[in-house]
Amino acid sequence: MRETKINALIIKSTDSVAVVTEPLQAGRIATYKVKGEERSILVKEDIPIYHKIAVFDIEKGQGVYKYGENIGCASCAIQTGEHVHIHNLESMRETIKR
């Protein structure tokens, strides 16, 4: 079950999601580097290439961060290792007030 190969990328160390750089099946290990240090998480569901995986638990309604910025909020609770996409992440800015 150990995989040492880097197969995911996180852009800012504070981000709540990483992006997988190869398709990862449930049960595999996603490994990414944060400031030169490798971190690994268990993949809980199949994740297509370049899709997002939660790197820590996110509560419903909480902001999701990528690039160090808020990219929307969790529409339901998301567990570490789960796929983060349209089924559990909602835009907060598609209509804005000026």
């Binding site: 997002k52 690039y67 990219i71 929307g72 835009s91 800015r93």
Partner: peptide, 12 residues
């Protein structure tokens, strides 16, 4: 391709 929200796309 893995982009979920407009803010995510524009941030990129």
């Amino acid at each position: 391709g893995g982009i979920t929200t407009l803010e995510e796309k524009s941030l990129g």
